[in-house]
Nucleic acid binder design. Structure first.
Lengths: 330, 330
DNA sequence: CTGTTAGCGCGTTCAA
DNA sequence: TTGAACGCGCTAACAG
């Protein structure tokens, strides 16, 4: 049926192993032999079978990548970084979307490990016990991205969401805001957004301030969700002078609501986001927000994987940090 | 080293093939045997090896997916649809990003075929001759998404970008606009955006109108790019009364520019996008644009793959259509 | 209902 | 510098 090494070997008049060696560029090789083989590969249209190769050599070029979602803009960006970095190193990503569900993650990990990947990239530090057990037994490198508040399995690359919440509180307090609101979405599932809110609450508490008035929007994070969320938050609570959003998408929706309702940004109501997306910085008044180095997270994750093939016993943490973008909305 | 079927079989006191059958739920099986096996699987912590399974059975659950980019918002959405649909059917996506480059695509196809995927999903109908040859020889289903203006290898699912450009021209002419501008980005690489522009030009020509004044923005498609692009287009051309953008991201940037420059949308300058993204519909004045059924494209692509395992000789086209969203900006 | 036999296509190990 | 033999872990095909 399909063309194998055997066919190429026959055409080239050499043995299978010689073809294999030429293709992998291994060992000393007479130039003439190499040419014969390469010519035969061309003529036969041979496509290597990595299934067999990986099975025989026990080393694949697949990397499992698990992301919670693709509808939050941050993850496609991270995926782009991972994909570019992997491609450069000859690896191929097998992708799974967990939908922020740890049980789904466990199932995906199980089926990815069946492909004997060279490494796995997971999102966050929360996993089921079984997930952790499986990846540990697999003996491969595991990078957990986005979060560093916890104990990593192997390497964690990201930043502290709690700290970013605290920094948000400090920044806004310093700018004179005192009546805080918060608009988010499903915080049970998005643990990192929940950590940011907790940081905000803790930061306010340190200054003797009460927690923000909170509105949680149903449905996925989106611009329209943020717009509607702010409308409801303001309808239920009067006197707020600043609203923190769980992310930039929602915050842009908040800005739209203000535009439409004639609420003056910053003076009448401060709006603060999270992520530092381009779409929010391009607004007539750039969004005040926190930028994470997410462009680097994907690439750093891959670099960490390639550094050594032995898992880091005890875990290692790489803090990629974050920075406040003053902007003009808060 | 790792735990194999042999180990499980030994623990369960049955043969390897029996374990294999229990795990795949094949054939009639005494309940007691099944229980023994499942118990042994638990106790040993067995993780199946699909490499070996696929090699032996010549049928994998991998599907190669090639996308031109992840920074254009449309593709993460499509990827989400594909990922969800594949997951439901027990398939796993192996993802590659071509960066709109056909040679990169060829290399990615070659290395994906090495994993003997059950099918491939490619973007667009333009491929190198070698890419086409390889996937045809592989004898697997191939779905080309996004575009239907051309000859598909197997199945094409999408819509006519040229027709959408013509429809845009007709719609805007009917609304009384007469001085057209266009803001896009690298049209050499994004053939579909180029086809939309050509459709716009052709639509205008049918009405005896000249082609639009065009500004092509350097760099990737983005909100900030659209904002800057419109600024420059207006600086170079006076008297335009409507500007069509290559996509919604750019168009939102155009809206931002108008907000800032005090240009009244629709009356003073019409803005028209393409895609129908949520972020643009949530604007205080919803963007006038064209919505493609891209949410369905990913899912339809997977459905097409699963319908039958034999490639459609001669090719088949599924038109998912598009619709004009009147909006309030043009 | 369960087991035996014989590969899948390649890479490792040894030998020449 | 090249080759032969063997096995990676699993499943298809046939037996029983």
């Amino acid at each position: 049926m399909s063309i194998t090494l055997r066919d190429v070997a026959r055409v080239a008049g050499v043995s299978e192993i010689t073809v294999s060696r030429v293709l992998r560029d291994i060992g000393p090789m007479r130039q003439k032999t190499r040419d014969k083989v390469l010519d035969a590969v061309q003529r036969t249209g041979y496509v290597q079978n990595r299934l067999a190769g990986t099975l025989a050599s026990a080393s694949s070029n697949l990397v499992g990548v698990l992301l919670p979602s693709l509808s939050n803009n941050v993850f496609p960006e991270i995926m782009a970084g991972i994909s570019a970095a992997l491609a450069q190193s000859g690896f191929q990503p097998v992708v799974g979307v967990t939908d922020y569900d740890l049980t789904t993650e466990e199932a995906l990990v199980r089926s990815m490990l069946a492909w004997k990947p060279a490494a796995m990239i997971l999102t966050g530090l929360d996993h089921t016990r079984e997930t952790v057990r499986m990846v540990e037994r697999a003996g491969i490198r595991v990078v957990e991205i986005m979060d560093i508040d916890g104990r990593p399995i192997d390497v964690a690359i990201g930043f502290s969401h709690h700290a970013s919440g605290v920094a948000t509180a400090r920044h806004l307090l310093a700018r004179g805001y005192s009546q805080f609101g918060f608009v988010g979405h499903d915080l049970d599932r998005d643990r990192r957004a929940a950590a940011r809110l907790k940081g905000l609450v803790d930061g306010l508490a340190m200054a003797g301030m009460p927690p923000p008035k909170t509105h949680l929007h149903d449905g996925p994070s989106s611009v329209s969700g943020g717009r509607e969320g702010l409308r409801q938050l303001l309808a239920d609570n009067s006197g707020l002078d600043v609203v923190v959003f769980a992310n930039d998408d929602l915050a842009v929706g908040g800005v739209y609501h203000c535009m439409e309702a004639g609420i003056e940004l910053r003076t009448q109501l401060g709006i603060f986001g999270f992520n530092g997306l381009d779409m929010a910085q391009a607004l007539p008044q750039p969004l005040s927000t926190i930028r994470s180095n997410r462009a680097h997270i994907g690439q750093s994750a891959v670099e960490a994987l390639l550094m050594s093939s032995a898992p880091d016993i005890g875990g290692r943490i790489v803090d990629t940090g974050f920075e406040i973008v003053a902007g003009e909305t808060a």
